[in-house]
Design a protein around this nucleic acid. Structure first.
Lengths: 353, 353
DNA sequence: TTGAAAGCGCTAACAT
DNA sequence: ATGTTAGCGCTTTCAA
């Protein structure tokens, strides 16, 4: 590999001149320098530059599970923005483990210019590693309790869940099962609360056994659904608080040969790739996934450029109810109330393929 | 950030001693050194080390589309191995673009200790950047024509496609449509050839209009399926050569209200997350996806440790036919042949959730 | 076993 | 506008 000295020698100038040329400053020997760089195929050593400048031009992106389509989309959006701005992304998969996350952060903190973090769990306070090293961090999808000190890009979980509840209620459902996420996570709690809030508001607050707390994983969704179905009075509708649990729950329904929406209506949070061609096509709460990643990266890069620019931001994206065919009025409406007329609030045209 | 000098001073020794301690050599002042490191929370600067050693302890992983579940799984497997061996992963998404890939490789070549590359397209020869910089590279899922000079981890595409063809033929299908991938890619060509080989072998080689060349993308699968269905004599079965095209094709079938497998049988290549709960559950050619990534990373790290150890390896993973319910004998068996009895070669128990 | 010191490749004073 | 040079933090020869 050619070094800046080789280039300087070949071009007949000093290394300072090369360095300046590289920065875009005007230099007299411009042409000779360009030629020398070209001829030697010179590429500045990132390590040397990093050592000198204290900057790496790389960003750490830490997610619980890259195989979760949501996080895959987030990473895609984030990487795209990063690359367009000359940054590279270090990807870390914590496998939903707080310990791994801690290790990862420790290794990461002084290796990158900034971090996008989707925490596996949500401890009361931010990791000591972050507290100390103080790299710019943007929290993604989850925020920490005492953390107005950090930027974050979230989604309006409560509102999304509220839309799901309202939709189900307007269809006439009154026994509605909730497959909730862990309550110690932002999306878990937010969706839980939003959902119950709305049901309470309309006066059909579910009994405790209709509320199953899952773990945002497939198997969890499966188990929760099973428990719901085993009830003496099973629900006429189910809302699952994330994509993976939706899949698990649908498998359970499938295993028990329960027809959707004839026997039970189903709403999921987060669209699935196959959402439209499932039988029936799934009604879901949708949100911009890649955009969430892209937004987080933009915010982070802005913060890196101006560490004390704006005060920490808390961006909240909107969700929307995507009505397909997994929801319908209950088969036998409870006698306590006449079935209400469905009045969709949001709807979008399905595009082909 | 504390430097090695701070630690040396605090421990009352020289930096050389600290460095040696860090390497695991025995030093007299062991305890004092450990304490100093602990107290100062010293972490060696990766940049400085990298500059001195010429090694980065990071690996570039380059994929065409991280949102494709296959590549997401690959990355997951690869990252896991890398992390367990103390390496970090730079993730690059080329968005199926050869130009982007070239840029990425140029930026990457002297920044990482090795590269796992799933090429977007397959040029006749390896990128000049790689030719020159000569970092260890493992090709994943795709290989280059003239490239026994590199390690690669592939899957037996031809055999997988053959299994699909045989399965369909054994069910009695004779008009079988193929939604193929691009023929200038390893998996595209391999699956194409394997499929047609087998059909030729059993004597039901399809007419050209039954072979649609897609692009491995969703929309491509959709269009190909549409073309197949528009035929005067549409096929009684379809094989789609990858996951995304399967999804597109299924959407097309769904849009046209064609019942599977009653009206048409369907086999996909690569399992889908929802494969089991689709209606009907999908018959697919399955392969170990995370393992493919993990294997590639292991191979790469081995190569990094011993650049001239073994000659370049070409690892080929097996696929297996996963028979579910999207395949059945044709509704009206062609009079030219009696329906054959289904004789599954491979089968696996479906696990719950 | 240990320390002194050179040097990895670059940038940015500072001097000219 | 350009050159000289110190120094970023580490590893490793070489000498002791």
């Amino acid at each position: 590999m050619a070094t800046i000295y080789d280039v300087a020698r070949l071009a007949g100038v000093s290394t300072a001149t090369i360095s300046r040329y590289l920065k875009g400053e005007r230099v007299r020997a411009e042409h000779a320098v360009a030629d020398a760089i070209e001829e030697l195929r010179f590429r500045p050593s990132p390590a040397a530059r990093s050592l000198k400048l204290g900057t790496t031009h790389s960003i750490g992106v830490v997610v619980p599970d890259i195989a979760n389509p949501f996080f895959a989309a987030v990473v895609k959006g984030a990487e795209s923005i990063a690359r367009s701005r000359g940054y590279s992304v270090f990807l870390f998969n914590t496998e939903e483990s707080a310990e791994r996350e801690e290790e990862v952060l420790a290794a990461l903190a002084d290796r990158v210019d900034g971090i996008i973090l989707a925490p596996a769990t949500e401890p009361a306070d931010v990791s000591p590693v972050l507290r100390r090293a103080k790299p710019p961090v943007v929290f993604l999808d989850r925020e920490l309790a005492k953390t107005d000190a950090f930027d974050s890009v979230l989604v309006d979980n409560a509102d999304g869940a509220r839309q799901a509840a309202r939709h189900l209620f307007e269809l006439g459902h009154e026994r509605i099962g909730l497959i909730s996420g862990p309550l110690d996570t932002t999306p878990g709690l937010g969706r839980h609360e939003g959902f119950l809030d709305e049901l309470t508001r309309v006066g059909v607050e579910p009994s405790p056994d209709l509320i199953q707390i899952g773990d945002f994983r497939r198997e969890g969704g499966y188990q929760c659904a099973l428990r719901l179905l085993a009830l003496k009075k099973p629900p006429t509708a189910i809302f699952a608080a994330n994509n993976l649990m939706s899949i698990g729950a649908l498998r359970a329904l499938h295993a028990m040969s329960i027809r959707v929406p004839d026997e039970i209506s189903f709403v999921g949070f987060d669209d699935l790739d196959l959402g439209e061609i499932l039988d029936p096509p799934l009604t879901v709460i949708d949100r911009p996934m890649e955009e969430q990643g892209a937004l987080a990266m933009r915010l982070l890069l802005t913060r890196i450029d101006a560490p004390n620019g704006a005060p920490p931001q808390r961006i909240v994206l909107e969700t929307r109810l995507l009505i397909r065919s997994s929801t319908a009025p209950p088969a036998a409406p409870p006698q306590s109330a006449a079935p209400r007329r469905q009045k969709p609030r949001n709807q979008r045209k399905e595009t082909s393929a």
